[in-house]
């Protein structure tokens, strides 16, 4: 019985790509936790972790092992299935976005042309948006299942915050779509390779997107769902062991993925400036592309950390005020202005 009409080579190719992309995201997120502690140390004039391995490079492994070996406590009055489902969902939604990101152009291995993108669907950017909007479930379900008032408050804060900032994010994306005229992330990168980076056409849109990305990742100054001096640990108060680790870890994966998305949408993705990729052989061009993307991503991740250790947390009413009264009107204005300019030049 012939079930799959696609050739087996492509299936294996995609499976390998998925494994590589997911494990790469996990490793990068692991070392982002290390980088966060080092950056915090530098900004606060400390040394940071330097005991485990040379320069403390084995610190993330030690942290992970510690979390795995800790006692696991499930509260007696919690709903057990949902309590476990919460961190799992947080992790899944964090990793799912990587499916539509173009990591590079293509490589030629064993006579095959391998696209460095898991799925080039023609609604790529909407897929990203859909997964982002699902990210709140992990937090909400975990918070409710904990059967703890602090957790519930943290979860509700997370939900209302993410819903509020999604709107401005979506509207800023609409303006970007009007400029590029495509929903596929791959095509957007190809356009930017040929022309200019989108940030030149959409500076305001990028700023709005950046602020919303901070809010969607629950990063300072928007980390109210886990504000430790009001809510103990926020939505993960009752969690221990690796389930807590999953929640903390998914934040870093989200940070990495949203950095990649910002680099792809506004900063040319795997486009290396001042280098014409067509002149290079495909494999070297792909490597150069991946390196360029990673360099951009590292800049963004550093920005995330820099902001975290510089700016204090918002008050909750300030957060809502910024979201609804400033960002959404600004995003609407940006959309109208973009539409007007496009209409004027297309005449």
């Amino acid at each position: 019985m012939m079930l799959l009409a696609i050739d087996l080579g492509m299936v294996i190719e995609k499976l390998i790509l998925i494994v590589v992309v997911v494990s790469a995201s996990l490793v990068i997120a692991m070392y982002t936790t290390f980088a966060e502690r080092k950056v915090a140390a530098i900004l606060q004039d400390r040394r940071g972790p330097n005991r485990a391995g040379p320069f403390g490079l084995l610190q993330p492994l030690a942290d992970g092992l510690k979390l795995f070996f800790k006692e696991e406590i499930i509260p007696a009055f919690s709903s057990k299935t949902l309590f476990i489902l919460g961190p799992a969902l947080a992790m899944i939604t964090a990793v799912m976005t990587s499916a539509v990101i173009p990591w590079g152009d293509h490589v030629e291995l064993f006579g095959r042309n391998i696209n460095l993108q898991i799925a080039d669907i023609n609604i790529g950017i909407l897929y990203v948006f859909g997964v982002v909007s699902l990210g709140v479930y992990g937090i909400m379900i975990g918070a409710w299942a904990s059967n703890n008032k602090f957790s519930l408050l943290g979860g509700l804060r997370a939900a209302s915050q993410i819903i509020s900032y999604e709107l401005a994010m979506g509207i800023s994306l609409i303006a970007l779509l009007m400029v590029t005229g495509t929903l596929s992330l791959k095509e957007m990168v190809v356009q930017q390779q040929a022309g200019h980076w989108n940030v030149i056409y959409q500076p305001l849109g990028f700023l709005i997107f950046l602020i919303c990305a901070f809010a969607e990742c629950n990063r300072t100054p928007f980390d109210l769902p886990e504000a430790e001096n009001e809510l103990i640990g926020g939505y993960h108060t009752e969690y221990s062991s690796m389930k807590l680790g999953f929640y903390l870890f998914s934040e870093y994966i989200n940070m990495f993925i949203s950095s990649v998305i910002m680099a792809t949408l506004f900063f040319g993705g795997y486009d290396m400036p001042f280098v014409n990729e067509v002149n290079l052989s495909p494999n070297i061009a792909a490597l150069v592309g991946i390196a360029a993307l990673m360099a951009k991503v590292i800049c963004f991740i550093f920005l995330f950390m820099w902001v975290r250790w510089t700016i204090p947390r918002f008050r909750y009413d300030q957060l809502m005020h910024l979201g609804w009264r400033i960002l959404i009107p600004l995003a609407l204005f940006n959309m109208l202005a973009t539409g007007g300019v496009i209409l004027y030049f297309s005449k």
């Binding site: 859909g130 909007s133 699902l134 709140v136 479930y137 909400m140 409710w144 519930l152 979860g155 509700l156 939900a159 209302s160 819903i163 999604e166």
Partner: peptide, 12 residues
Amino acid sequence: GAIMVLFLFVVM
């Protein structure tokens, strides 16, 4: 992503 989050919000 949006409507069911609000449902969940209210139910919780």
